[in-house]
Every structure is written in C-alpha cells, then in structure tokens.
Design a protein around this nucleic acid. Structure first.
Lengths: 242, 242
DNA sequence: ATCCGGCGTGACCCTTCGGTGACATTCGGG
DNA sequence: CCCGAATGTCACCGAAGGGTCACGCCGGAT
C-alpha cells in the first residue's frame, strides 16, 4: 500500500459470527484495522463520527438491511466505498447494490482470495480520494499557474478560467501528479482509475490526456507538463522547461 | 543498480529460455536476487521452504501451468505476490489470473521497461520495498558532465542540453554503464536490451552507439567514453582519457 | 420524451522509432 | 603497404504508436 503509516480501517457489518470472524481475521492478516458489527443500526451510529476507508456490508441483516444502510449513508453525503456481500448470486441483487450506491458486489459463498482481491481493488481505486481528503496538502495541486482542487473536481487554469473536471479527468490527473517526473504506463492508469476488471482501450487514456492538455497546457500541441513516453505511457512534470 | 539493503529475491518461472534469460538479467541488473525455473513443479517444491518477495509466472508451462501453481500456493496459505506473463492479451485472462490469486498480469510481447515498472509497482504495493527505491543512486548516471536519469529516460548533456532518450538508447546505455571499463559484446547487448523473440543484426547496435556518442561525446568522432573494442563489442568509460 | 454531458471507440493522419543497406573509413594481419 | 573485414556514418523506409476529431451510447436531469 502506498500509505502504510496511517492504518487503513475497514468496517465489517455481518451478522453471521462465523463469516464475520473469517473475514475479520483475513483482513487483519493483510494489515488492515478491522471493526466488526452485527447489524446496520450500530454501524450507522458508529459511522456518524468515525471515518473508515471501506465498509464490507452484508445485504441481509437482522434489523436494518445493507441496501438501506448504504442508501442512508449516501443520502447523508457519506461516500465511503461499500463492498456488498450477499447469500444468493442473483444478478438483480448486484444491480440493486450498485443502485444503492455500492462499489462492488460479491456472492456467498466466495473464495477468500477473491474477496481480498476485491478489497484491494476498491482501496486502490479510492486511494487517490483518501490521500486528497485526509491531507489538506494533497487536496490541491499547483503547477504552472494552474490550481486544481481534487475535492471539488474544480480547477482554475493559468489564464484564470475556472473549469469543472470530470471524475475521470480528476483521477487521471491525480494518479499522474502523485508521481511527478515518473513514468506511468497506460495499464497503470487504467487499473488505478478504472479498476482491475474493466477494459477500456488504451486509446481512452490518450483522450483524457488530450483533454487535460487542452485544459492546462498553454500550448496543448507542445505539452510541457503532460509528456508522452513513447511506447509506455505518460509522465507529469510540475516544472515545465523546454 | 539499485541495491536495497535487504536483498529482494524474485522467482522466475518461465519455460522459454530466451525470455527467461532476458527477464532474469534485467532483474539482476536492478539489484534483485533471481532464481529461475522452467516449470511449475520444481517451483512449487522450491517454494515449500524458500521464501521470496515476488514470483514472475508464465501462464503456459510444460506440465503445471501458472494458474494452477498460483492457486495451489494460495490454498497452502502462501501469499507471495505473483506477476503473470501470458502469450495472448485476452482481457479475460487477466481476470482469471487475478482470481487465481495473482496480483498483476502482463501480456507478451511486452517492453522490458514496462515489465520492470510493474515489478517495482508490485513490490512497492506490498511495501517490502520502500519508496527509497524511487530515487536510488543507480537511477542516475553521471560522467564527464553528462547526467542521465534512467527513470525518466532523460538526460542533460555536458553542454546543458536536455535530451529525451528513447527506450533502446536508455537501455543500451544502462547495460554499458553497469560494467564501466568492461567489454560488452554485441551479442550481450542484444540479449540484454532486446531480450527475447527479436533478433536484429549487430549493425543495429552500432547505430545506437553512434547515437549515444552524438548525444554525450564532446567529439563524437573521437569517443572517450563509448569505446570500440575491435572485433568484439564496446566498452564504457566514466573517466575519459586519451 | 427530450436533452445533455460524460465517456468510450473507431478512423484518419502524422510522428517517431528502430532496423537495414550503402558507402566511407579504419583497423590489423600478411 | 595492401587488402579484406569490421566499424563509422548517413539516409531511408516500414511499422507501430500517438494526436486528434467526431460519432454513438448511456444514464441522469429537465
């Protein structure tokens, strides 16, 4: 993980004690801090003033079910990523989960390995978000007169024009800016921004680079900050020299 | 090049000798300890009592294929990170690899540079490898006023001109500079830089030497750093005397 | 139902890289 | 000193990659 220092905290809401124990154990073994609860109510309570990086949420719970809990959270403006667990593999359930504002969905019984894989994928995808919202310095990027606020997806370009960034634009920029000067391959970008099981073509990445250049480069045709690394990917520079 | 204090050990399981050689060489040059094997069976055997930090695993192997090996490892509770290599770039294969418990996936033919990027990414993700590796002393080469940053394929020549190196130029320079003063044959260079499945003529090497001389020698016609060893290959000198 | 913005893709064109051949030059041995 | 072989040097070409645009899809808002 990129940020080992601040422990990554995961909330598990699961009423089956056996499953809860197994999941908790394995997550702890991976180095995460895990809080476990048996129903939606206390979870909602706890989440009111406790932040965490991920919620693993059973759909079927004694009182407040998972969908309701998730929807409630979203209505409250809480955008913590949610991974749903469900007894049956009904595809309709997956849709319902995503509609309720979930991020991923896993049918029981599942292989622990696949579960851990999905957890890692979600956290990786949201990595950028945590690093911006937690540390004030990471929330704003400045380069060559441009100023980007990742929390609001808003930027003011060098010429003073205020721009609304789309989600993907912001995420790509964030991933690039995390490693200024280093080469980031298209595949890296795809994985970090889109996730491990989605496969847009690499040309899609090019298009977003194009958009970023149009937004932030003084001369988009001769980029000084969003540089192409031929045959590999792209590289972001804060300082642009000839 | 970069020599992290605790030696990082990587197991390569690959049946194609050419590919195995290229991969192994390049990993060694990065400072890793590399063990190479041709099939899954011995690998599984070896892993029973030998730890390592990363397994580079070909999907197609003579007897035990990569997926099976990986799945077996996971069932045994071995969570060593796995990077899959495969012949075809089928996206579905990627998911299969990840669900078998792999951590990343690379389709052949790949650029060696991309491969190394991924290895670093995985090791960094697992934190068995600190971000100190982002600026190892080995990533920068200095000689006769020239300064080369291998991470970024970028150099500033003695006269102050900033140059973007191509992938091949950078890799040839790197291979030469790894053994200053030693003779490197054209065949060595071909093996290290092109690695596998491509075999250009040795004259191609000469051309790249020519380019390097133009970039870094004060008098390209009288080279002091990129010396010809007649009938064999080339030799790189940091200190250039007549 | 309609509109709209985000996003993914295909198509077209241009650039870059890498590899080769041709010719000049140099080296080394006889 | 001469000649063949290896290397220096350059120009060129094909292939692959990237820049750019326009279109189509889809989900959310009107």
């Amino acid at each position: 993980m990129s940020t080992p220092a601040p422990q990554i905290r995961i909330l598990v809401v699961e009423d089956d004690p056996h499953l809860a124990a197994g999941v908790t154990e394995n997550l702890r073994a991976e180095g995460y801090e895990v809080i476990s609860m048996g129903d939606g109510k206390p979870a909602l309570e706890w989440l009111r003033d406790q932040p965490c990086s991920l919620i693993v949420l059973d759909v079927m719970l004694p009182e407040m079910d998972g969908f309701t809990l998730c929807r409630t959270l979203r209505e409250q403006g809480n955008s913590t990523p949610v991974l749903f667990l469900t007894a049956r593999g009904d595809p309709a359930d997956r849709v319902r989960g995503l509609e309720a504002g979930g991020d991923d969905y896993l049918a029981k019984p599942f292989h622990l390995q696949e579960f851990l894989l999905r957890v890692r994928a979600i956290l990786r995808r949201w990595d950028w978000y945590r690093s911006s919202s937690d540390t004030p310095s990471g929330a704003v990027l400045q380069f060559a007169g441009n100023e980007v606020d990742f929390r609001a997806f808003r930027a003011r370009a060098w010429n003073g024009v205020v721009q609304e960034l789309t989600e993907k634009e912001a995420m790509i920029l964030k991933v690039l800016a995390e490693r200024p000067g280093e080469i980031v391959s298209r595949e890296d970008l795809l994985e970090r921004v889109w996730g491990y099981d989605v496969f847009p073509s690499t040309r899609t990445v090019d298009n977003f680079i194009l958009r970023l250049r149009k937004r932030f480069e003084r001369d988009p045709a001769n980029p000084r900050h969003f540089l192409t690394v031929w045959g590999v990917g792209y590289r972001f520079l804060v300082e642009g020299e000839s």
